[in-house]
Write a protein that binds this DNA or RNA. Sequence first.
DNA 1: TTAGTATAGGTAATCGATTGCCTATAAATA
DNA 2: TATTTATAGGCAATCGATTACCTATACTAA
Lengths: 328, 328
Amino acid sequence: MAVTMKEIAEITGVSKATVSKIINGRDRYISEETRKKVLGCITQMGYVPNAMARGLKVKKTRMIGFILPDISNPFFPEIAKGIEDKAKKEGFGVVICNTDDRAEAEYQSFQFLFAQQVDGIIFTRALRRANMDKVFESGIPIVVVDREVNTKQLGFGQIFIDTRQGIKESTNLLIQAGCEKIAYISAQYHSEYDRYSGYVEAMQEAGRQVQAELVYKNQYNVDTGYEGINKILETNKVDGVVCGNDLIAIGVIRALSERGIKIPDQVKIMGFDDMYFSQYMVPPLSTIKQPAYEMGAQAAEMLIDNILYQKPLAKKKLNFTICMRGTV
Amino acid sequence: MAVTMKEIAEITGVSKATVSKIINGRDRYISEETRKKVLGCITQMGYVPNAMARGLKVKKTRMIGFILPDISNPFFPEIAKGIEDKAKKEGFGVVICNTDDRAEAEYQSFQFLFAQQVDGIIFTRALRRANMDKVFESGIPIVVVDREVNTKQLGFGQIFIDTRQGIKESTNLLIQAGCEKIAYISAQYHSEYDRYSGYVEAMQEAGRQVQAELVYKNQYNVDTGYEGINKILETNKVDGVVCGNDLIAIGVIRALSERGIKIPDQVKIMGFDDMYFSQYMVPPLSTIKQPAYEMGAQAAEMLIDNILYQKPLAKKKLNFTICMRGTV
DNA sequence: TTAGTATAGGTAATCGATTGCCTATAAATA
DNA sequence: TATTTATAGGCAATCGATTACCTATACTAA
């Protein structure tokens, strides 16, 4: 169906080799005349080289994969944008795989990306250690974004922020603001561990006790915030809420406003991530900003530098920022 | 680097053909013994068939492309999710290309997807007619999502809602709610035309005049809403705002709340799209809901049915829903 | 006994682009 | 004039999987 290199060669009366050389800029020994003729034919026929055939031969596809847990959580598209922008600049395409936070889908995504022979993979939210080792053995460069992975396994890169410290400061901010009963609402994934320990540490260092009934964990979405705070308020009073991400905070704000509870006067709220419209919430959300776009961009840069120039993959820590706005 | 079919064949002492047949289920004339042996070797070696080699030979890649204008607008990830879910069910992968609403990037995305030999493409936000024709000539099945494309060109599918009617009803709702001075804030893309005419029609049918100084168009994002309403309020008073999408509405709400203007008492606001957390805004946003997930799912279904069973691509109109919440 | 057929699996061409190596001419140098 | 060398471009193997077609054996039916 599509035009092939062979056809271009036949029409212009040269060999496939010549066409290939022209396309790939190995045209040192190609006359200007043939070059023009071939290039003209290519645009005229709308010829686009078959990336599969090329990939098969040169074993480089100029594609990188990005595995994310939930594309409807705006934090991840922001990372994706960072990745895409960087990738596009280097002539790489990005294949995005959504896993819905299911380990099985994560595994399938890897299989799929391997099959597609992507040159590298960026992924967020780690599998359990066991599965990860298997994946890292594949030899394909991998950069993990969004959390520190504790594994001896080397040979993969990391872009992360200290989420434990982030949540710790978030909690401290609430403590300093005078909150007495501070709830914690978040998700329950593997990646949650760091966050929760930040909360626990902050509480303990302030001499507070962590009360199980003030903790609710489900998923990183709005519903969790909404359900969580309602559940907690059934049996408890709170005057501060540490949220595992901004979506949860939105749910909390919604539930509180339905109950006529004033924010931040009666209850103070800290989010996490800083989705780009969190600042536009009413009241604007106080949160810990993860530099999502930057994380994506740096991950892509590290990965592509490794693919193209064998620069080693590294561990790179980016800083979070505290954004105090209207909810604390 | 990666294990190949040839290696599997050598290890198990059969031919490549046999391995291939087993993988693809053409194992009618394969003994249970060999089948087990080969399958065992495959899992043990972690063999994943090279999708490029297969794609090159069978001219089917089981990949579809999705071109979207702005991945950080939550409306599109929602569509993407609908596409992905459907696609995954049928064993298709999805390549997402973000264009930042730049026509050039849109064109490049098509080129890229052609090169990748995707089996079909779903895209939102149309190029100008001229460029589209070129693309449709490629022979690859295409489904356009999100707006009606007026072109004689056949052979591509459409999933759309009547955005003109949607905005018209949105405007009428404001008129019925007693608004006298109704502003319109939206984007200025090609795809905007329908929306704006909905506003104009509603105004005219109600005997109102469209005042240019109450109209602001820039982009479908929060900033546009924020800037737009502030600009308008410099010289005018308004008591109703029709927004081109929910992000714009969020920006408007923010700006108004900064000015201490009460919503909906002093100004009423209608959004458009219904992003999944719009209902959680404070006050919850009244909006016209586009069934984003459903649009994605149906687009993918139509496309895959065409790819797999040559079912013709059709024009399909989905219905919007009016969601009256707290801003009108 | 022999032709026919079901079973099991192998051979080799093919998909489209790349690339090391070869040929042929022209120009430069000895 | 003879020999390099630069220029221009072609040949054919190759990447990994698929598949039409072929071979060989075992079993059936006539």
